[in-house]
């Protein structure tokens, strides 16, 4: 008999899981709270490590979603209950009984206004990495609130990550490489601009990332090892920033036209309800906890509940796709057993 799998979240993780689990011969239902699939990736313009169009990735996945797969859009999963070996998933417009669950509900963006000293939402030329992606989608280059083209731009790494003050001690993993990617794109769209990246460490861990860093250096982007202490607004709504060049032990101040805050990946609050319904504890950073750091990266501690992608912690698209495929195989083995 065909078994039913419910996938919570229709980002790239959920989409890939739906494709794979359907191919393995099970009935699949995807619940997505937005009106469309794609999750956060649908908001990005070009993606690292190769500056490919994000749209291409979403389109390729969409093409593979066969008609057999049941997609429930605008369908926010509010509650999950467990009855013996099966689960009842209640969304605002649906109810479904399933034999297994893949939690693919992703992350939330760190709210930049929590770091008040950086002036997001107060000074008009303080934007986030996500605002910058939107500018690239809309106009192909960044702009100041008054419409002018910025000539000096500073990227601020680790906003809402590695920071005890906002209770986020972990590294968000994708923001260093995103900052390098965006700095390159700024330079490509405004060649005469001066671009600065203020970092604590540059974490270029993935294939092709170090190459992008070298490319950024070659384009004349200035990397300054130091963390922003405060930003203030000066004439013409420009931003005065202060940091230390920790390599020469000298405080630095500079005025720029635009600062871009590299906001971190935070656990999603909506997830907490689902985790508590399933009697799962979040890990110490607030994400869904995997059963074994090395050997069961997509198992939760509850039988029949699998977890993948950014709901388990910061990850790249490649990580998310890998986790998704791994979860799909685990789901298949599990369903063949029960």
């Amino acid at each position: 008999m065909r078994k039913t799998v419910a996938i919570i979240g229709g980002g790239i993780t959920g989409m890939e899981a739906a494709i794979q689990i359907n191919k393995l011969g099970h009935t699949v239902h995807v619940f997505e709270k937005d009106e469309k699939l794609g999750g956060h990736v649908a908001q990005w313009d070009h993606v690292f490590p190769n500056q490919r169009k994000a749209r291409e990735i979403i389109n390729e996945l969409t093409c593979q979603i066969s008609e057999e797969i049941n997609i429930h859009l605008s369908s926010f999963v509010e509650k999950i209950s467990q009855i013996d070996d099966s689960f009842v998933i209640k969304s605002d417009n649906n109810e479904l009984k399933a034999d297994a669950i893949v939690l693919a509900s992703g992350f939330e963006l760190f709210s930049a206004s929590k770091k008040e000293e950086y002036g997001y939402g107060i000074f008009e030329n303080v934007i986030t990495s996500v605002d910058l992606e939107r500018m690239f989608v809309e106009k192909g280059h960044p702009f100041m609130r008054n419409g002018e083209i910025p000539q000096r731009i500073a990227f601020i790494h680790c906003v809402g990550s590695r920071d005890e003050k906002v209770k986020r001690t972990y590294c968000s993993k994708v923001c260093c490489i995103t900052a390098v990617k965006q700095a390159i794109e700024v330079k490509e769209s405004i060649p005469e601009a001066s671009v600065y990246n203020l970092y604590m460490d540059l974490r270029m861990f993935g294939p092709g990332y170090e190459d992008m860093y070298q490319k950024a250096q070659q384009k004349g982007i200035t990397f300054i090892r130091g963390r922003l202490s405060e930003a203030s607004e000066v004439e013409n709504n420009r931003i005065l920033i202060k940091t230390e060049d920790t390599l020469s032990s000298r405080p630095i101040k500079m005025t720029v036209d635009l600062i871009v805050l590299m906001i971190g990946i935070s656990p999603s609050l909506a997830n907490n309800q689902i985790l508590s319904d399933l009697k799962l504890e979040p890990n110490k950073d607030g994400f869904a906890e995997i059963a074994d750091d090395h050997l069961s990266p997509t198992h939760s501690k509850v039988k029949g509940v699998f977890i993948a992608g950014a709901c388990t912690g910061p990850c790249s698209i490649t990580d998310a796709i890998n986790a998704s495929r791994s979860a799909s195989v685990e789901v298949h083995h599990y369903l063949n057993q029960v």
Binding site: Q217, Q218, R250, P251, K253, T255
Partner: peptide, 29 residues
């Protein structure tokens, strides 16, 4: 004053060196 004021920094020498030898900018300290 110990503060390095980037608004007054003179980039000419750096730029000249980077043109003479394009490997200059690749330093990771």
């Amino acid at each position: 004053n110990k503060v390095l004021n980037f608004d007054e920094l003179n980039h000419d020498f750096h730029q000249w060196i980077a043109i003479q030898d394009s490997s200059f900018n690749l330093c990771i300290a």
